[in-house]
Design a protein around this nucleic acid. Structure first.
Length: 475
RNA sequence: GGGUCGUUAGCUCAGCUGGUAGAGCAUCGGAUUUUUAAUCCGGUGGCCACAGGUUCAAAUCCUGUACGACCCA
């Protein structure tokens, strides 16, 4: 870094501003390559700019490789063309941003190159870049200093662009189906709509505790009460819990609510969404994730939650005694002591069934105890009308026929409180009051966007699809 | 929370059963007018994550801590 600071001084002595204000670019590197035939015939010079990736000096000439966001480009400096200015290039380093003007030609190895007739420093770098050949591998640096990861590993830049395209497609799908995108509060006085511990904060102006939302559900339902019939929100939610390959405390979801439909209608919607995403993101309806291949074919497989679990356990989970549940949990190495009845059942399900679901599958008709916001199943009052969309053992979506009976909803909240379940600390009276004004029959859906990105982009860790994952403080 | 593995130059990595710290790239100086992981010659660069312990001697063995990865809960 000392060497580079010296060069910086030297440049200033030469009256060269190392941090000028702008550069007029005529073409990106990709545009230059695409229009090579036409541009290389022309006498007119082109102007491009980018970061220096490599310098290959040959005495009175220099080849350098530059990169802009779109592509790489080789540029060629010759002393006989640049005269005294040629020496200025000696003060440039790998990593610096420069602008060049010149004409396109092909070298004898057939590489499109700019013969430089004029150049300018656009920004001097002080620190050396990670090595060009091996890239940056240290995952800790890749996550802590993502900008270095993005410089050194262009494929990572591609992943995040694809993620953005994916979110754009999701938005387009729902817009095209007549849904309206809404924005609801991130800071909530009462949290709810999911099972999780919240992040807590303090709202000075209102002199009260607030929570970062764990879900948007209860606000979007208020919008259905208000008369909208198809709404969605692409939201950042926050859950104050563990971090692992599939969990980041701060994560992205889309929640969708549609009036006058039920979970069957939502299943249909999800199938079409997934199909739409695949058709726009990849060439086939086959998907590879962590070396396992899966084919998408409508209709997706459906598995009844309790049937699957009962078959595996050999007894009926819903009529089982608490002691029997405890025994079963213990047998499967689950620490049941701190868990509510519902949590025990759900834990068993994840361990014994969900883990092994690879094909795109709707797990349907969950027990009522683990689904406080879902409507009772029309054929079995111990169950609710709910589905989870699961593949590769990962839960991607969760949906219900939404409970709209305010009296029943109050009972469920009270039961949740009595169970000391996560995700509720007190009853959201305002929400219940909204339901008392009447919510039409409604299907609701939540999709984890990070996990969906993981699967569609074949990334093994959620941190590979989140630009700035939180890590512990460095010491 | 538990287990396993990792942490050595700016980056990627070697470093054996303990004996003076190594390579490639980057960087600096020199040569080089079509190179492209350019090449050739010469140099700089290290609190071996941190703190203890064992030993005549520790990057190496032991203990603890921090951070990270993976697995389990």
């Amino acid at each position: 870094m000392d060497e580079r600071l010296k060069k910086l001084d030297e440049l200033r002595r030469m009256k060269i501003n190392p941090y000028p204000y702008k550069y007029e670019r005529t073409h990106t590197f990709t545009e230059l390559k695409e229009d090579f035939e036409k541009l290389s015939q022309s006498e007119k010079t082109v102007a491009s700019c980018g970061r220096i990736l490599a310098i290959r000096g040959h005495g009175k000439t220099v080849f350098a490789t530059l990169t802009d966001e779109t592509s790489k480009m080789q540029v060629y400096f010759r002393q006989d063309r640049l005269g005294d200015r040629f020496a200025v290039f000696g003060l440039f380093d790998i990593g610096d941003f420069i602008g060049i003007k010149g004409n396109l030609f092909k070298t004898k190895t057939n590489e499109i190159t700019i013969l430089v007739s004029d150049f300018a420093l656009l920004a001097k770098t002080l620190r050396p870049l990670p090595e060009k050949w091996h890239g940056l591998k240290d995952v800790e640096i890749r996550y802590r200093k993502r900008y270095l990861d993005l410089i050194a590993n262009p494929e990572v830049r591609e992943i995040f662009k694809k993620r953005t395209r994916l979110v754009g497609l999701i938005r387009k799908f729902f817009d095209d189906h007549g849904f309206v995108e809404m924005e609801t509060p991130i800071l909530q006085p009462i949290y709810g709509g999911g099972e999780a511990n919240p992040f807590k904060t303090y709202y000075s102006a209102l002199e009260r505790d607030m929570y970062l939302r764990i879900a948007d559900e209860l606000y979007l339902k208020r919008l259905i009460v208000g008369g909208y019939e198809k709404v969605y929100e692409i939201c950042r939610d926050f859950r104050n819990e563990g971090i692992d390959r599939f969990h980041n405390p701060e994560f992205s979801m889309i929640e969708v609510y549609q009036a006058y439909t039920d979970y069957e209608g939502i299943m249909d919607l999800v199938e079409h969404l997934v199909e739409f995403l695949l058709d726009n993101l990849s060439d086939s309806r086959t998907m590879v994730f962590c070396d396992r291949e899966v084919e998408f074919k409508r209709p997706f497989k459906r598995i009844r939650y309790t049937d699957a679990l009962n078959e595996k356990l050999g007894f009926d989970i819903l009529s089982a005694k608490e002691s029997e549940l405890d025994k079963t949990c213990k047998a499967h190495g689950i620490d049941y002591k701190i868990l509510s009845t519902g949590a025990k059942i759900d834990k068993l399900f994840s361990e014994l069934i969900q883990k092994y679901i690879i094909e795109p599958t709707f797990v349907i008709d969950h027990p009522k105890v683990i689904s406080p916001l879902a409507k009772v199943h029309r054929k079995d009052e111990r169950l609710v009308e709910r589905f989870e969309f699961i593949m590769f053992g990962i839960e991607l979506a969760n949906a219900f026929s939404e409970l709209n009976d305010p009296v029943e909803q109050r009972k469920r909240f009270e039961a949740q409180l009595a169970q000391k379940a996560e995700g509720i600390s007190k009853i959201d009276e305002d929400f219940l009051e909204a339901l008392e004004y009447g919510m039409p029959p409604c299907g609701g859906l939540g999709i984890g966007i990070d996990r969906l990105s993981m699967i569609l982009l074949d990334q093994p860790s959620i941190r590979d699809v989140i630009l700035f994952p939180q890590l512990r403080q460095e010491r």
